[in-house]
Design a protein around this nucleic acid. Structure first.
Lengths: 201, 201, 201, 201
DNA sequence: GATGAATGAGTATTCATTCAT
DNA sequence: CATGAATGAATACTCATTCAT
């Protein structure tokens, strides 16, 4: 009778890492703490991860990977760029808002160093930005988004807004539901702050 | 003629810290490295700062403090919320874009830990968000911004966009000028991504 | 055949500490010096001891612990309080006189600070004083010691004499054998300095 | 108008040192702490003392020096070795018992290292032991002390008893008066623990 | 695969002491 | 004499990582 399958053990380590790192931060969390919570020996962690930092990276990859794959499929089901964009906003905020421990890690702990951020940027976030940019381009071509819109710049702006909302929610310890802001945020992204049409001046 | 005044020494330490920390990151930069570049003894740093972390905090305070004070005065000279908002965008991107070393620190190194970010958030960033929110409220009351606009949410969104632009610029090692995007970014903030007026659908 | 058992390693660290600390004193002895002589890594010491100071305490505990346990059994074999007292004197001086390095530690290095001495005093020395006091009470009840003798005060006085003899021997670098004084010291403790019976005056 | 005479300043430093070192121990007391309490600059201490350790030595010298000089004169006034011995006991305990801060220093802080103790031993304590030994020799020659008494050994024993009483008093935080034990201690020194004459056995 | 004892590199910080004023 | 800003040597301790079992 196998008590633990290998995959099980790897998941347990990641699950333990989320809790411990969210609680104390990456630098104050020791490998031994993660190992203890996961119920494995310190050395066992090195059978599944190259080093401590890779545990952190894997945490992010697991979360964002799921999010992106799932998101791509879902988007195909929506007709029209606006609906797609609204879905992106809602899913982003919902996902982050579901797991505060994970949110602490993605919004704070993951942004340790230049080296680290560059790595993340190149990896997953880039794919996410591309998806958003595609939606923007699609909307522009459909004529529902501005003709002069730069999809790449727009994607970064949208990501910046969503990221800031998430960080703000993590830092404020309030119990508001992050996804409650989805509609208003989407409206802002779509319509900007200015009145439309602008008053002639 | 005194070779060094006390203020001089403190500034030299901060200047040295920017360079060293930007180059290697906070954790890989030793106090000895900062001291050597500043031309002081290791112990001297502790005459001016409580510990290594306080050097990092002071770096940020010096930079953002200047920015906010200066900004408030400047804004008073602009008539109309739109002009003010455009000035905020331009100055934010210009400031960040002027000193890549400092930008690395504000966009990356400063975001070390939950504790750290909370501290920053409570302190200076909160004041910055308030200024933006005031401009948004002013514009809404003037009738040039949307009637239903939430100034606080809007301020966070704008900050998120600017912050993401800054981070993106730091991570991309390209030699583009960050402030070159100011106009386009401001347009996006003002008008959103959607065409205006929206096509009836 | 295991090269090192865990107990072995702990003992080796203690043995190394005696030599190094006796040679240079506690403060001038670094953890690295002890580790090197013990043939272990610096960090290994912290697997067995909480900190450097605990190594010193353990040294004392090991030595005095043995002495007290062994002594209690031995005393049971002696008939009469005088014989027991003479045995205490002889064993105390013999033990100290056997290992000059250990003696340096117990007579000098261990007396670092008020905190330290209080701790020692509460711990082992108190038990030793009790044993002596019991012997004095027994002798008093047997009628061979003075009727008015306060066993607790007497025990302290005796300990003071033995401790001073030990310290004096450590400080004088002569090669005299400390236990050679046992008989004379015991006579002094038993009979005091005054002639007996005192000349009427 | 001289606010402070040089001697004044040196005394103030020593007075400050007694308090600070008694409170925290020698190693945890910084030169800056002593300077602050004395109301002088850190560097000023080095005008009067070679280094921090010399402050500690001077403390002891000042105290024991006074004691010995005063004692020698006083002893001349007593007729008979027993009276002299009783006076030594009483004065030793009285002096220690008068100033707990100073007592902490002489009984605990001064016993730092082999080097330190050897220095003290050679210096003042040796003179004190000689005085006691002289009294013992005098008593022996007068016929009131045992004929076989070794004055040097006896002096050490007596010093050991007095020293242990003093240390015990420092470590027990009780408010007993140390000099209250003088008579009983002197009786013990004179008569030992055994009944006199001993019962034939 | 799993363990966990052992390793040893790595560094912030203190504080006695100096010396220019 | 006095100051106190500046110095810089010196070290206990942690913890990621390894590897013999």
């Amino acid at each position: 009778m196998a008590r633990t399958s290998p995959g099980d053990k790897k998941q347990r380590i990641l699950d333990a890492a989320v809790v411990e790192i969210a609680r104390r931060g990456f630098h104050l969390t020791t490998v031994a703490m993660i190992a203890r919570r996961a119920g494995v020996a310190d050395g066992t962690i090195y059978l599944y991860f190259k080093n401590k930092e890779e545990v952190l990276v894997s945490l992010f990859d697991r979360a964002l990977g799921r999010f992106i794959e799932e998101g791509r499929d879902r988007l195909a089901g929506f007709a029209g760029a606006e609906a797609k964009l609204r879905d992106i906003v809602e899913r982003h905020l919902t996902l982050v808002g579901q797991d505060r421990d994970l949110a602490i890690i993605t919004q704070v702990e993951l942004r340790h160093s230049l080296h680290f951020m560059e790595e993340l940027s190149r990896a997953q976030v880039g794919r996410y930005l591309e998806i958003i940019a595609e939606v923007l381009a699609e909307g522009r071509d459909e004529g529902i988004f501005r003709a002069g819109l730069d999809p790449v710049l727009g994607a970064k702006a949208i990501f910046g807004i969503l990221d800031e909302m998430a960080t703000d929610w993590v830092l404020s310890r309030r119990n508001t539901r992050l996804e409650g802001k989805a509609r208003e945020v989407a409206d802002l992204i779509l319509g900007g702050v200015a009145r439309c049409p602008r008053p002639e001046n």
